[in-house]
Design a protein around this nucleic acid. Sequence first.
DNA 1: CATTTACTAAACGCTTTCGTACATTAATAA
DNA 2: TTATTAATGTACGAAAGCGTTTAGTAAATG
Lengths: 220, 220
Amino acid sequence: MQKTTTKPEAATTPRRGRPPDPAKHQAIIDATRALFFAGSTKALSIEGIARAAGVSKVTVYAHFGDLQGLVRATVLAQRAEMTAILDQLPTDAPGLRRTLIEFGGVLMEFLSSEDFVTMHRMVASQASQQPWLGPLIYREGPTATRDKLADILAEAVRRGDLRAHDCTLAAEQLLGMWQGLQTTGLFSGGCPRADAATLARRIEQGVEVLLRAYAPEPAD
Amino acid sequence: MQKTTTKPEAATTPRRGRPPDPAKHQAIIDATRALFFAGSTKALSIEGIARAAGVSKVTVYAHFGDLQGLVRATVLAQRAEMTAILDQLPTDAPGLRRTLIEFGGVLMEFLSSEDFVTMHRMVASQASQQPWLGPLIYREGPTATRDKLADILAEAVRRGDLRAHDCTLAAEQLLGMWQGLQTTGLFSGGCPRADAATLARRIEQGVEVLLRAYAPEPAD
DNA sequence: CATTTACTAAACGCTTTCGTACATTAATAA
DNA sequence: TTATTAATGTACGAAAGCGTTTAGTAAATG
């Protein structure tokens, strides 16, 4: 709605007046995240956010239009960080087992983070107001990760390291085993973050089960 | 805070005045659930709930004290339904494979239901305000289910149908494989409910992987 | 009957938030 | 310099919700 929300053509064409301060923009988004984490959507108000961000209320309106737009922008910013992390998932360690374990390690580190939980909750709380947000995040997050993992498995099948199987299903199974009840638990505030050792064990055991179950035909 | 909220000693000692109407109580809780499902915590207001329940605002206060108490009561009522379902999980089908598949079927049917998703979201949205709620639900829900499943597996180990292993971990793995990305997806509104066939396949394949991975020592 | 309790409807004062408007200051380009 | 845009602070009217009060009706017991 506002010009300031659109892409930075200001970078190419230096506009006339005082340039917008990107720090303000970021401060507002940060404040939104922080306030959300400290109390859900109910606690989110433009006035509160402006106060927390050390910014005028009017500035918030100028940048994001309204509260919905602000939440949308915050989630999308978070998504950017998120997909960046997922792009860095290691897929080329020597050996299938190591590849999977390293993949799982980086992934679970992320899935256990506060940022992830926050974003997840925000999306859920916005599901009814902005129905397109859920599918977007779901596609770029879980689905993309699963497909990437499925590619690794498919490649292993091609090399003969695994028997032929539905790789997408198997990828989902592995993701499920890694997460277990933790994602759900963190989400509802029911269980604390697993410590590194527990997490590592869960990752390795998940890989172990998968490798054993989909091992190349023994003598079937 | 209110006498009406305490246990029904009225059943034993018929009190003096007009008896409270349990239908009102239920109507309020139902309205709360409905309104929550249609828009998250933000949309919840005492006045709106009273309106939707066809009940006076004062009656809501008389029954539940305040909004927090109302949400708390709603979640706990939901919990009662929930644990009742979990108690009905079949654990005695003939044969391990059938037992697990039937267990998974009933469980996933429940985990895919709107009621479950609603409750899950409510708990998550209350995590900061009522921190004890999350652990309570988590303990009686996911943890209890996992332990019940672990018992089945331990019994199978005792009979020699499975090799010795960490049954709790294995139970969590199986639960994870069954759920895959679905619980997360439903939660954030990212993916639609899986159809019965897909669900059945996911359950069976999960069981298959587990049975193969923890099969009795082949010739190790 | 009188008493006691549940419930309703309407109104109350209070607070919070919304989104907008106005006047002012800050920073930058022409 | 002047023109232009960013940002601030304050104030405003409108709306909505909170939690309470009051007066009255409905349903049960003694």
